[in-house]
Nucleic acid binder design. Structure first.
Length: 775
DNA sequence: GAGTAACCGTGTTCATTGTC
DNA sequence: GACAATGAACACGGTTACTC
């Protein structure tokens, strides 16, 4: 062979590569040069690798080289030498994993024939992809189709993938579901969607420019192919899906395909896939977020909107009622006793429910999720409360004993097949967040049957409340006389002592110490259920009582009147008035009611607490001067309560009995008697605070010194020099606190000039207990 | 031969993981 | 935390069998 050497790429022609076919990779350096050189020397550059005798590639890119490829140095050296050099010396060492043969390669089975996609293939593929998508798997990756190809080798995974991406997904809907599917659909039970979809919905709706658009990630058909299906979803579309949220979520997995197709058949404006994508990508997250926000908003509303009287379902009406209660349980379904007796407003008024539960939880530093996630759905906690507390189920204990949680789940539209775990989750949810609340309310409501008093109207209750407050003021005025001028500083102390009790109305006297104590400073309910939430990080916003603390004076009375109309407070107020509205002895009245109930009610965020009248002694002492309306209201209230005045003379034996009851109650909860007594002493018989201290005393951690209601050494030092010495004799120390039979403290509460319990200092666990009287 | 669609390869982007 | 390595996901385009 005549060797023609082409130095520097000269192209004078030759026969060096005559008869040889080369495939030169696109990324080979100086590719054009090599192509020209090959052709100039009689060779042929082919377009297909498999047509080539030699594959020329870049040795610096072995991964891109085909197995058996030669480096371009083969051409270079051959041209230099004028003869073909040994190709073996120029073979590119292709990495094993990247080796691939010419053409389809060996990594996948080479198919000599094409396999047409049948309808069965398409259906199989569609169901496979939808199923995967529902599990959150990517539908455009390789893995999904590799698995599919392993299960159904009629096509390669690439082919399956292509089929879906290029063909089925764009046109999904009308073409995916063939007659066979429809027949199958007819055989199966009608899906919830088809069974419950509204019959009068328009079949087409105007397009809203502001409406969200289905993700083009999944649906690109209208952009590439002729399709009557529009991409824009209107608010009506959204509302339609939200209305059927529960039903959609209850669709069994194997029914989903047919259900969406049926849905799309009825609402032709979108394909089944579009409807489905839109629902899961937009409607469902949005819906759940709305539920959550609605719950949170209610909490904040409760804190801020203190002057608003309880308006049943107000929020529900204003904020997507169907959202919060897509399948609302009717009041009649919940209870038939609402109008006659013992109506629990928490069952009918979500605002009340959330208010009271928030307060209850706050009391125990627990966190309440008003939109808990159950089997992937966020449900309003109120609905769970309504359902379990309804007459049909009659509370947690009955549901638990009768194993009715599946039935409860059914009531909440959980599919027993698809959401098999929903009953268990609902139970846990209820037990964690509602069981104690329910128990509390049961005890509380049964304890005070007065609530069933049918003759006591709301206005009467309000009047009772007013009267209670006014009588408290009267008592104070009668006993303190002109000492009111000196009350300001004392009020601060009272604020500290009584915490939120005064917060509602004594706005001007708020001090930093009234701020909510740190979580660690609060004790917890001893019971286990509540403690479950103990470890959670508190996210409860500023306490509602804080909000009330800044109510203007003019609103105080109104606030009391309206808020007290709320159930729990009504209960307490009525108790106070009916049992013994002894206006001057706060402690006495506290002891008249169930300790836990009382303490809890005092913590109720948006409502004046149980012992409000008593605890407002000093507040109203000031308020009297500020509020010109007070006298008239007082007269009115007194008039309403005239018959109760006879009950104000509580005997000491009654007091002793109540004190005993109080202590026994807490002992019944597992606290040692001395612990209860110590807590009582520490709180100046402020039963509201007892619960806060009991746990810490029981744990041996002692009482915090920076906690409201706990009197510190520093406080004592500052205040010990007053006329309190007159009363110091009453206290010998924590260990000598009044026992269950001692009413010494109770007597102190009514000592003229002392100002009731409010002016009585608390104690700290390890220091001398001190009473004082501000000069 | 042209058109279609099944099949395939490759480059880019991005998220995850491991290392420093 | 920064960086690199790795692999999955994705988009795009090429190849080729098949049909008309």
């Amino acid at each position: 062979m005549a060797a023609i050497v082409y130095e520097g790429g000269s192209l004078d022609g030759g026969s060096l590569f005559r008869g040889l076919k080369f495939f030169i990779g696109q990324r080979v350096p100086l590719r054009e040069h090599w192509v020209t050189s090959v052709k100039a020397n009689g060779g042929e550059v082919v377009k297909l690798e498999k047509q080539a005798d030699y594959l020329i590639a870049d040795p610096l890119r072995p991964k891109q080289a085909i197995a058996g490829s030669l480096s371009y140095t083969f051409l270079e050296n051959s041209l230099k030498s004028g003869e073909l050099v040994d190709p073996d010396q120029h073979v590119i060492d292709v990495a094993e994993e990247s080796k691939r043969p010419v053409g389809a390669g060996n990594s996948v089975p080479k198919r000599n024939t094409r396999t047409k996609f049948t309808k069965e293939d398409d259906d199989f593929l569609t169901k496979w992809v939808i199923k995967a998508e529902r599990k959150g798997m990517p539908t455009r990756g390789n893995e999904l189709y590799q698995d599919l190809a392993a299960k159904n080798p009629r096509h390669t995974f690439q082919s399956w993938r292509d089929r879906w991406i290029k063909i089925l997904e764009p046109r999904l809907g009308p073409t995916v579901f063939d007659e066979d599917d429809k027949e199958e659909q007819e055989i199966n039970e009608p899906s919830p969607i088809t069974a419950r979809q509204p019959s009068s919905k328009p079949q087409s709706r105007p397009t809203s420019s502001a409406a969200p658009v289905v993700s083009t990630k999944h649906i690109k058909a209208p952009q590439t192919k002729e399709s009557p299906i529009r991409m824009i979803f209107t608010d009506e579309d959204t509302a339609l899906l939200e209305e059927n949220y529960d039903d959609i979520m209850n669709i069994a997995e194997d029914e989903e395909l047919n259900a969406w197709q049926a849905w799309a058949d009825k609402y032709h404006i979108h394909t089944a896939q579009q409807w489905r994508n839109y629902f899961f990508e937009y409607v469902k997250p949005r819906y759940e977020e709305k539920v959550l926000l609605a719950a949170e908003k209610k909490n904040s509303d409760v804190a801020v909107d203190s002057e608003q009287p309880s308006q049943p379902n107000k929020l529900q009406q204003s904020e997507a009622p169907e959202l919060l209660h897509p399948t609302k349980i009717s009041d009649s379904e919940i209870t038939h006793t609402t109008k006659e007796e013992n109506h629990d407003p928490t069952l009918s008024d979500e605002n009340v429910f959330q208010t009271e539960l928030s307060s209850f939880a706050q009391r125990f530093e627990a966190e309440v999720n008003f939109a808990p996630l159950i089997s992937g759905r966020k449900i309003p906690l109120f609905r769970l409360w309504q359902t379990v507390a309804s007459e049909e189920f009659n509370g947690f204990d009955q549901v638990e004993s009768l194993g009715q949680w599946p039935k409860v789940a059914g009531k909440l539209n959980f599919n027993d097949f698809q959401h098999s775990n929903a009953p268990h989750e609902l139970r846990n949810c209820y037990e964690t967040m509602l069981a104690d609340f329910e128990e509390f309310r049961k005890i509380y409501r049964s304890k005070f049957s007065w609530h069933k008093e049918p003759s006591l109207t709301s206005s009467q209750e309000n009047n009772l409340i007013q009267t209670q407050l006014m009588q408290t003021v009267n008592q104070e005025n009668d006993t303190e006389g002109g000492e009111e001028d000196d009350q300001e500083e004392e009020d601060d102390d009272l604020d500290n002592l009584q915490g939120m009790q005064i917060a509602q109305s004594s706005s001007k006297k708020r001090r930093a110490r009234q701020e909510s104590p740190t979580p660690s400073s609060r004790s917890h309910n001893k019971r286990q259920r509540i403690d479950k939430a103990k470890g959670r990080e508190l996210e409860i916003p500023s306490t509602p009582e804080e909000s009330y603390a800044f109510q203007d004076t003019g609103s105080k009375q109104k606030l009391s009147a309206t808020e007290m109309a709320r159930s729990l407070n009504n209960e307490v107020i009525t108790v106070s008035s009916s049992v013994s509205p002894s206006s001057s002895n706060l402690g006495n009245e506290d002891e008249q009611v169930l300790p836990q109930s009382l303490s809890l009610s005092r913590r109720l965020s948006a409502t004046p607490p149980v012992g409000e009248p008593e605890t407002q002694d000093f507040r109203f002492a000031n308020d009297e001067d500020e509020d010109p309306d007070t006298p008239s209201r007082r007269e009115h209230a007194i008039g309403d309560l005239a018959e109760d005045s006879s009950t104000q003379s509580q005997t000491e034996s009654q007091k002793a009995l109540e004190t005993q009851t109080f202590i026994e109650y807490w002992m019944g909860l597992g606290y040692a008697e001395e612990i209860v007594i110590q807590a009582l002493v520490a709180t100046s018989m402020e039963t509201d605070s007892v619960g806060l201290f009991l746990e810490q005393l029981a744990n041996g951690t002692g009482l915090p010194e920076d906690m409201e209601g706990v009197w510190t050494k520093a406080d004592d030092e500052a205040l010990i020099h007053g006329s309190a010495t007159d009363y110091r004799r009453l206290w010998q120390g924590p260990t000598q606190a009044p026992n269950t039979s001692s009413l010494t403290l109770l007597e102190v509460l009514s000592i003229p000039g002392l100002g009731g319990l409010g002016s009585l200092g608390g104690s700290y666990a390890n220091g001398p207990f001190t009473c004082w009287h501000d000069e």
